[in-house]
Amino acid sequence: MFRKKRINFGSAGWFLLPYFLVYFLFFFLPAISILPMSFTEWSIIGTPKFVGFANFKSIFSNRFFVQALSNTFVYTILVTVILTVLGLLLAILLNQKLRGRVIARTIIIMPYVISSAVAGILWKWMFERNFGIINTYLQQMGLPLVGWLSDPQIALYSIIIVNIWWSVGFNTVTFLAAIQGIPDELYQAARVDGASSFQCFKYITIPQLKPIILYITVLCAANSFQMFDEAYVLTQGGPLGSTTTLVYQIYTEAFKSFRIGYSSALSVITCAIIILITLFQMKINKGENA
């Protein structure tokens, strides 16, 4: 028995080894090296110059950082909340024995199949202020034109719409699988006890889905905190920096301005925030479970 277990572990280890080797060499090591780099001034060429906390000081006094931080938080919170709630509601809807639900499931997951860059380009055409399809219809209905991507007050919300359209299918399918995994006996027992549909949802579905909800929220929060593709394709961080996120700023500082030390410091801050958010989410979940 013991021997069999050991062999299983051994072969699994061998299969996992290449991945971990690549992960360690090309992801973990470079990621860790960002920390010492964040205390230097370096433009890729030459020797990094130690500058202490100068990069961090300069980041916190930079108005673009404050704007990027605020954009990132607004984006993360809205995307996480909407994606979780909408994903759950759609999953419940698609779990009903309705006609055409297979087609509906396919339609909902479909956007997720295309790359986010392609999704971005499609929406860029549709969002075009003067001659895009959405505004053309609005205009025909006598409504004013909306600067979906060109109005600094609106652009970030337009990107949120794109992200939700693109990724809600993934959450829906995940929730759907989890819902279908809840034993039917629980519902049957509850119904025998006279529970209403809402009570079944509140006292059976939600508690049973808790681990999945945690998984989805952690994933959504971490992913949306690192949003880049959509802003890159749709708005290039504009207008007036209204869609510049922390990761977008890291990219421009590192690969456009070649300020590696500064962008490393930005990465360290971003990473710290993501860790804090994840810990916070896990703590809430633990607290509720206790």
Binding site: S150, Q236, G237, G238, L240, G241, T243, T252
Partner: peptide, 24 residues
């Protein structure tokens, strides 16, 4: 050059024309 005449959203001259042409 890449900082001063850059074409990113926080490049100075992009800020100049965006602020003006978006009337902000």
């Amino acid at each position: 050059e890449s900082l001063v005449f850059g074409r990113d959203s926080n490049s100075p001259f992009v800020v100049l024309v965006e602020s003006t042409l978006l009337n902000s």
